[in-house]
Design a protein around this nucleic acid. Structure first.
Lengths: 130, 130
DNA sequence: ATGAAATCAGTAATGATTACTATTTTCAAA
DNA sequence: TTTGAAAATAGTAATCATTACTGATTTCAT
C-alpha cells in the first residue's frame, strides 16, 4: 500500500495550506475544482481522510456537524463564532497542563484533549454595535 | 408556545437521569421503548433537543459523529475512550481559567469552551495487559 | 365540557460522509 | 522504453444520524 503521487491530493493539500480559516470538505471541493474541474467530491473526502491519518493535516470537529480541516498540525487552539460559524486560530499559551489535572483522579490513560472556545468573533461583535 | 406535559418527555428525562454513561438518542429510544413501546424515534430526538434548549440536559458532541446526552448540567468534564468509544465523567477541578488565557490576545468575546479528554479507559487498559 | 395549542407517531426528506466499481494513473522492474 | 500490478480516480449509490412534515391525539386553561 505504498503511497503514490496524485495531482488531486497535491492540490488539496496546497489549497489547505493557503488558507487559515479551516475550510470544510465542500469548500475544498469548490475551490480545487477551479483548477482541476473534474475532481470528484469523493476524492476530496478520501484524500482529506488520508492526509489526516498520515498526520499531514488536522481534522477539526467543532460541533457544528461538519468537519473542518487545518494544514497546521502544530499544537494550537480554535475559536468558533456562535454568530457566523467561522472557525479561527487563537494565539494563546499551551494548556496541555489540563491533562495532568484531568489525570489526577482517573484510572485510565489520558492521551490528549480537544478544546475549542466559542463566543462572538471580532467581526460579528462590531456589527452588533451598529 | 407554553410547554405542556408529555409522558414521553418525562420518561426520556427520567431515563437520562438514571444513567451516567451519556447515552445517544438511539440508546434512549431503545430503553424508553421498554416502558412505552410505541414512542417514536422522532419524539425522542425532538424532546432531547427541547430539553437541551431549555438547559435541562446537556448535549455532548465528542467528535464520534453521534450526539450524547447528559442529565447533569453542572460544569464538569468528559473522557472518551479511543478503544471502546465510551463516554464518562471526569472528577477534576474546574479549568474555566483557560478562557482567560484564550481571551488575552483575542478581539472578540469568549463565552465558553468545550473540552474533552481522550485516551484508554480503565477497563480497556486492563484488557490490553492480558 | 370544549377548543386552541402543543405534542405525537409514523414516515419522508436532508445532508454529510463513506462505499463501490469500472477506468485511469503511477512507478518500479524488466 | 515497455509493462503490469498496485494505487488512485470519477461518478454514483448507499449509509446513517438527524430533522421536517402531516394528520391524529393529548393537554389544560376557560
Amino acid at each position: 500500500m505504498a503511497l503514490k503521487y496524485s495531482r488531486q491530493r497535491q492540490l488539496i493539500k496546497d489549497f489547505l495550506m493557503s488558507r487559515k480559516d479551516h475550510p470544510t470538505a465542500d469548500v475544498v471541493y469548490m475551490n480545487v475544482r477551479q483548477e482541476y474541474p473534474n475532481i470528484s467530491l469523493g476524492t476530496v473526502y478520501r484524500n482529506l481522510t488520508l492526509l489526516a491519518d498520515m498526520g499531514e493535516i488536522q481534522r477539526l470537529r467543532v460541533g457544528d456537524g461538519v468537519d473542518h480541516f487545518d494544514a497546521d498540525t502544530s499544537t494550537h487552539y480554535h475559536f468558533v463564532c456562535s454568530e457566523c460559524g467561522g472557525v479561527s486560530d487563537l494565539k494563546m499559551d499551551n494548556i496541555d497542563s489540563i491533562i495532568d489535572i484531568a489525570g489526577m483522579n482517573f484510572d485510565g490513560e489520558i492521551h490528549g484533549h480537544v478544546t475549542y472556545f466559542y463566543g462572538i468573533c471580532g467581526n460579528c461583535h462590531k456589527k452588533t454595535l451598529s
